[in-house]
Amino acid sequence: MPRIKSLYYTVFLVLCLSIQVALADDLPIKITNVWISEAPPAVSPLAAYASLQNQSSYEMTLVAVSSPDFSNIEIHLSLVADGMARMEKQPAMTIPAEATIELSPGGYHLMLFNPGKQFVAGDKAMLVFTFADGSAVSIEASVMKRNTAHQHKHHHPE
């Protein structure tokens, strides 16, 4: 009897989840918390961070990010080994099925080269994320000041 009950429960949960998926965005990738960190004057490249959520049941690979406001954008990973910091350029970034990858300070980030102007907190820039399957997502990123809350709690502004 308890087994049947738990089976019903599971079916109910699965139904709830399917409804939720059906209601969600049509896009397999949901990009949130996109922000560009304000930098000292004349500093290039700038760094951008985001949260990439793969809502699909297949892996998605981010292959390029572009913007009319920057000459080029690269995906980098900051690594610290034996006290030495270095950045590793990533040719692509794979987001496994139903997984989320955070681009956050001290880890994965986008490097935005040669900003067309001095970006200050409050400014916006359009970023286009292109995936291996040919799909692309355009999203507006806000320029924000860094604060240590971003850096350690991985708490991104909405």
Partner: peptide
């Protein structure tokens, strides 16, 4: 020109 670790 270090966009991540240094400003952090």
């Amino acid at each position: 020109h270090c966009p991540d670790i240094c400003p952090v």
